[in-house]
Write a protein that binds this DNA or RNA. Structure first.
Lengths: 183, 183
DNA sequence: CGATGCATGTAACGCGTTACATGATTAC
DNA sequence: GTAATCATGTAACGCGTTACATGCATCG
């Protein structure tokens, strides 16, 4: 049920074809929030047209068809965004891995935790660079798509980094070793 | 592919029946990491037995069958946990909502952000209470299942809270209003 | 003896992934 | 002219959800 809202959201930025939308999912949106390939996108676009949430906007070369969001579509998206998620079914593999850490012996768990510390550090550097400088403002007086989400990502990775270091300390406590020093 | 590792992880704590496992998913594991009902669990247990990753351990009253992890199962779980996730397909609805925030007008976006700030504050209070006091140690000298994950959750919610307040400030900037004061 | 909880399964359906398949245009 | 890119679809399969279905044991 989420793909349709991703599509409505992208189309509410500007009209686009299925091909354009597939490319949009290959950027930050797709890597951090929701991914979909053209094979899922085309059938869903057809359904959205059926339901009157988007409409055919233009026909271009090579069979290119662009779609635009309708008023009904805008309303539908707005309702969804304003309705707080109902604690729905969770399927979060990275978090599952953290839960299962206690199934590893301490040496292996340390390996995993150091990996997390390292990779989150890299992500922080990347995102921090992307967000350096002033708050950007689009000509229409809105925040650019993804700017707020990037800020969220940055804080999440900082939290993950903090956590990994704390967890290494916790592990040291129960194995009664002196704190490991890793450069 | 993740459910099987959740099951292997739970069974590596202690042998359990399908029914026990279904209950385990109703706790923190199911609310934060991965959820599954008995309908998914029973077929997957059958498959794991077929593949030799778990084995039949005991037969009890009312048709109760408990399973235990085999050496092959332990190895499989360990390999999975030690293999860093390959940036696989992302499907994270809460984050998708953040990306789409720019599709809302500023007044609506503020509503959503205040909701997030409030709910994360509640979660922080809950988790903070659960984690108050010293690091618990099980008799076998291991950290209890879920302890590290709880620490992760706490930091995530703190990050979300921080972010929501920051995002409200960013919104104020582009709409050129004085910072909102909300109690 | 009826309600609740323990305990296990099957069937239909939807969403997502991987693979298969096709054709038009542009760049070299 | 041929390779890359634009552009759109279909089919098979797997995982997850919702709903359907059954039976035993304990508590009051």
């Amino acid at each position: 049920m989420a793909l349709r809202y991703a599509l409505l959201g992208l189309l509410s930025e500007r009209p686009a074809s299925g091909y354009d939308l597939a490319k949009a999912f290959e950027g930050e949106l797709g890597s951090y929030a929701w991914h979909a390939g053209h094979n899922r996108i085309y059938p869903e676009l057809a359904r959205l047209v059926d339901e009157g949430l988007i409409k055919h906007a233009d026909e271009g070369a090579r069979g290119r068809r662009t779609y635009a969001v309708t008023e009904a579509g805008r309303t539908e998206l707005r309702n969804w965004l304003l309705t707080p998620r109902t604690g729905g079914a969770v399927r979060n593999e990275p978090v599952l891995r953290l839960f299962l850490l206690s199934a590893l012996d301490p040496e292996d768990a340390r390996k995993v935790l150091r990996d997390i510390a390292d990779s989150s550090e890299r992500q922080i550097a990347e995102l921090g660079e992307a967000m350096a400088g002033d708050t950007p403002v689009s000509p229409d007086g809105r925040l650019p798509f993804g700017w707020l989400a990037a800020g969220y990502g940055l804080r999440q990775y900082e939290a993950a980094h903090d956590w990994a270091l704390w967890a290494l300390g916790e592990l040291d406590k129960v194995t009664r070793r002196p704190p490991t020093s890793h450069p």
